[in-house]
C-alpha cells in the first residue's frame, strides 16, 4: 500500500515539477506534511547530500526519500514514479521533434532559443562561480574588498581553464584531479 502511495506521489512530482532538480522541493515538503514519512530536518540533510553527490539532484532526493520511507524497494519505486511522466512526455516530444524539426517555423523558434539556452547555462555557471570562486559571505562580514576573492580557487580555476583548452581531455579527469587538489590543499 505504501508502495502505491509512494509511486503516485512521485509520479505527481515528476509531472508537475518544471525546471530542474530543486523544483521538486516544494512537492517533497508537501509529501512530508501529508504523510510524515520523513521530517523537515531529513529534507534539509537530503538537499545537502543530493548537491554534494554525483547524479541529478531530483533523482538523488527521490532515492533518499524513498529509502527513508521504505528502504531499497522504496527507493526504486520513488525513482520509477519520478521518471515515468518525463519518459512518456519526452518520447512523445522527441517523436514530433524528429518529424517537424525541418519545418522553417520550428527552425526559426530554435534559432531564437539556442542563444537563450547558452545564456541560461551562463547564468547557472555564474551561480556556481559565486559559491566556488568568491567568498561573498566573508566579504559581507568584514567589508574588506580583498576578502571577496578566493585566490586559491581562482588559481585552480585559471589552471583548469588553461588545461581544458590545451589538452581537451575528458571532463572526468578534471573533476577527479580537482577533488584530489581540493583534499591536499584543503579547499
Amino acid at each position: 500500500m505504501i508502495y502505491m502511495l509512494l509511486f503516485l506521489e512521485f509520479f505527481k512530482t515528476g509531472l508537475f515539477a518544471v525546471g530542474g532538480g530543486l523544483a521538486t522541493l516544494p512537492f517533497l515538503q508537501n509529501i512530508s506534511d501529508k504523510y510524515g514519512w520523513f521530517t523537515s530536518q531529513e529534507l534539509i540533510d537530503m538537499i545537502a547530500i543530493s548537491e554534494s553527490t554525483p547524479g541529478p539532484i531530483g533523482i538523488n532526493m527521490a532515492t533518499y526519500v524513498g529509502y527513508k520511507t521504505a528502504y531499497l524497494p522504496g527507493a526504486v519505486i520513488a525513482i520509477l514514479g519520478l521518471v515515468t511522466p518525463s519518459v512518456i512526455i519526452i518520447v512523445l516530444i522527441a517523436h514530433y521533434y524528429m518529424k517537424f524539426n525541418e519545418h522553417p517555423m520550428v527552425q526559426a523558434g530554435f534559432y531564437g532559443l539556442r542563444p537563450a539556452v547558452a545564456g541560461l547555462i551562463g547564468a547557472a555557471g555564474f551561480e556556481v562561480a559565486k559559491l566556488s570562486l568568491f567568498n561573498t559571505n566573508k566579504y559581507l562580514l568584514t567589508q574588506k574588498f580583498a576578502d571577496i576573492v578566493n585566490i586559491k580557487s581562482l588559481l585552480l580555476f585559471a589552471v583548469i581553464v588553461f588545461l581544458l583548452n590545451k589538452y581537451k581531455k575528458h571532463p572526468i579527469y578534471f573533476l577527479l584531479g580537482a577533488a584530489v587538489i581540493g583534499i591536499i590543499f584543503k579547499y
Binding site: 562561480a129 585552480l156 583548469i160 581544458l164 577533488a179 581540493g182 579547499y187
Partner: peptide, 12 residues
C-alpha cells in the same frame, strides 16, 4: 567538493 566545484565552474 571545494575543488570539484571549481572544476565544475571551469567546465561550465
Amino acid at each position: 567538493f571545494g575543488g570539484i566545484r571549481v572544476a565544475v565552474t571551469a567546465l561550465i
